[in-house]
Amino acid sequence: MAVEMGLLGIGAGLALGLGAIGTGLAQQQIIAAVFGAIVEDPKQFGKGLFFILLPETLVIFGLVIAIMLMGRM
């Protein structure tokens, strides 16, 4: 039983952590591009902020899975 619980815990951690890494990888490129755009035209700030946010879906899905797994512990 203890092993199973541990595996669930590791699974939950991986789901959240890997999701976060994915978001980070995507955001690093988007943020670089957005800052380039803002330097050219400061009015792009709002739109840029919005694009930065798009890949956060990944970490949110990770969190959902983590919570679902924790519900089984």
Binding site: T57, V59, I60, F61, L63
Partner: peptide
């Protein structure tokens, strides 16, 4: 994914 995306309301 679009429906699941609303989980961000919680997250």
């Amino acid at each position: 994914t679009h429906i699941m995306s609303y989980a961000r309301l919680m997250a």
